[in-house]
Design a protein around this nucleic acid. Structure first.
Lengths: 160, 160
DNA sequence: TTGTGTGCAAAAGCTTTGCATGTTG
DNA sequence: CAACATGCAAAGCTTTTGCACACAA
C-alpha cells in the first residue's frame, strides 16, 4: 500500500496537471502565484477561509495579495478542484475536492464543528428533481444543522 | 373554500399570536416595530433580502432602522417564523415559513431564478444521519444548482 | 512586445455596534 | 422608573475594484 505522504505528493502533482489543462483550455496564464495557492490548499487540512489562506502564505513569506487569492480561488472552483461553502455565516469556506469522496456536511450550531457524511439518496433526489423541473443539475449543497449529543462534543467540554 | 385574501389575513393574525408568545416566553418587548416588520414580511411575496425589506418600509414612510430590521429578522428566525438562506452569495435571503410547506431550493446559476421542491427522502437522510452521527438535527438546507433547460427560462429570454 | 495577472490600497456591500433617546412593562 | 429597544451613524469584515507595474506567452 502507498504511504500517506506519497499519496499526498501524487495528488498534488495530479491537481497541478488538471489546473494546467484548465488554464490552457481558457488561455489563462500559468503564473507561479496560481500554482503556489493550489499547492498550499492541497497541503493544508480540510476547510479554510480565504483570509486564513492569505495569512498562512504571508507567514511563509510568500508575496501574494488578497486579490490574487480570491481570483485564484474562483478559478479553482470553476475547474472543480475546490468547493465553496456557506455554512450559514456571511463567510465563504473552501475545501479541496480532488481525490476525496463527495460528501455533505453536518454543522453543530453550538460549537460550529463540521462533520462530513455521504448518502446515496441525495444523488437520486438530484437526478429526479433535475428531470421533473427540467434543470441540468451541476452541483448541490446539503447542510444539516444540529446539536451534538456526544458527551465529548467540543461545546460540551467548553461549558464544563 | 376560503378565499386567498382571507387566508392571508388568517395567517397574519396567527403569526402575530405565535410571535407574541415567543416574546413573552423570553421576556422581550412587544414593540410596534417588531410587529410591523413581521406583518410586512407576511404580506410580501416570497424570498427577500434585509435591505429590500428596509427600503420597502421606508417607502411606506414607516420609521424604522436597519438595526431594528436585522434585530427583528434574527428574532423571527429564532421562533421559526422565517427561514434564512445563503444561496451561494454573501447575502442572506429570508423567507416566511409559517403556513407554507417545507421545501428546498433549486437555483439557476445563470439567471438566479429560485424554484422550490419537496422530497421526502431528505427527511429520511436527516433522521438516519442524526442517529448515526449522534446529533439532534434542528434544521437543514438543501440547494441544487443548475441550468434551466426550458426555452422560456429567464436567462434564455434575456440572451435573445 | 502585448496584454493579462499581480500587488497594494481604497472602495464597496452587508451586517453589527455604540450611544443617546424613547418606550415598554 | 428602570431596563430594554430604537434610530442613526460609524465601524467591522469579507470581498471586489482601480491602477500602475510585472511578467507570461
Amino acid at each position: 500500500m502507498i504511504s500517506a505522504p506519497a499519496k499526498l505528493e501524487q495528488i498534488v502533482s495530479e491537481v497541478k496537471v488538471i489546473f494546467s489543462a484548465y488554464l490552457e483550455k481558457f488561455s489563462l496564464r500559468k503564473t507561479p502565484e496560481r500554482y503556489a495557492i493550489l499547492e498550499e490548499i492541497y497541503r493544508r487540512t480540510d476547510h479554510f477561509v480565504a483570509e486564513a489562506l492569505y495569512i498562512h502564505m504571508k507567514n511563509q513569506n510568500y508575496r501574494v495579495s488578497r486579490a490574487t487569492v480570491y481570483n485564484t480561488l474562483e478559478l479553482l472552483v470553476s475547474c472543480d478542484l475546490i468547493t465553496k461553502h456557506q455554512f450559514g455565516k456571511n463567510l465563504a469556506q473552501y475545501e479541496k475536492s480532488y481525490g476525496f469522496k463527495q460528501h455533505d456536511h453536518l454543522i453543530c450550531v453550538e460549537c460550529a464543528e463540521v462533520l462530513e457524511f455521504c448518502d446515496p439518496r441525495i444523488q437520486q433526489i438530484k437526478s429526479m428533481m433535475g428531470d421533473i423541473l427540467e434543470f441540468e443539475i451541476i452541483h448541490h449543497s446539503l447542510n444539516l444543522f444540529g446539536k451534538c449529543l456526544k458527551t465529548d462534543c467540543e461545546h460540551r467540554i467548553k461549558t464544563n
